[in-house]
Amino acid sequence: MPAQIVSAVPVPFTRDGSIDLAEYEKTLTSIEEHVTGVLIAGTTGEFPALEDDERVELFRVAAGLLGADRVIGHVGHASSRQVLRLADAAANTGITRFALLSPYYLPSDDDGVIGFFRSLTEAHPEADVYAYVFPERTGMEISVELLREVLRLPGMVGVKLSGGAADRLPEYATALGDGQELYSGDDGRLPWVVEHGGTGVVSGVSSAFPETFAALARALDDGDTDRVDELQRTVTRLVGLTGPTITRLKAALTVRTGGEWACRMSLPGVPAELRKDIDEVVARFR
Rank of each mutant, 00 (worst) to 15 (best):
S7V: 07
S7Q: 03
A8W: 00
P10T: 06
P12M: 08
P12H: 08
F13G: 11
F13R: 08
F13S: 11
R15G: 04
S18R: 15
L28R: 01
L28H: 10
T29I: 11
S30D: 13
S30M: 02
I31R: 00
V35Q: 01
T36V: 06
G37C: 06
L39K: 10
L39I: 07
A41C: 13
T44Y: 02
G45F: 00
L58V: 08
F59H: 06
A63C: 02
A68E: 15
D69V: 05
D69F: 01
R70D: 06
I72D: 03
G73H: 09
R85Y: 03
A87H: 08
A90I: 03
N92E: 14
G94S: 04
T96G: 13
R97A: 12
R97I: 06
R97G: 00
L101N: 10
L101R: 14
S102H: 14
Y104Q: 11
P107A: 13
S108I: 04
D109V: 05
D109M: 03
D111N: 10
V113D: 11
G115K: 01
F116H: 15
F117K: 09
R118L: 01
R118C: 01
S119D: 11
E126R: 09
D128F: 03
Y130C: 02
Y130Q: 10
F134H: 12
P135Y: 01
P135Q: 00
G139R: 08
G139L: 09
M140W: 13
E141N: 12
E141F: 09
I142E: 06
S143A: 11
L147Q: 13
S162I: 05
G163P: 09
A166T: 10
D167R: 15
R168H: 06
E171H: 14
Y172R: 05
A173D: 07
T174H: 10
D178V: 10
Q180R: 08
S184R: 12
G188N: 09
L190G: 01
H196P: 10
H196D: 08
G200F: 07
G200S: 11
F209M: 06
P210C: 05
E211G: 01
L216P: 07
A217D: 05
A217Q: 05
T225D: 15
D226V: 12
R227I: 02
D229E: 15
D229A: 15
E230M: 12
T236Y: 07
T242P: 00
A251Q: 14
A251C: 08
L253V: 13
T254N: 01
V255W: 00
R256Q: 09
G258A: 04
G258V: 00
G259C: 04
A262E: 11
A262V: 02
A262M: 10
C263M: 04
C263K: 08
R264C: 08
M265E: 13
L267Q: 14
P268F: 04
V270T: 14
E273Y: 11
L274M: 13
R275C: 00
D279Y: 12
E280T: 01
A283R: 15
R284G: 00
F285N: 02
R286T: 07
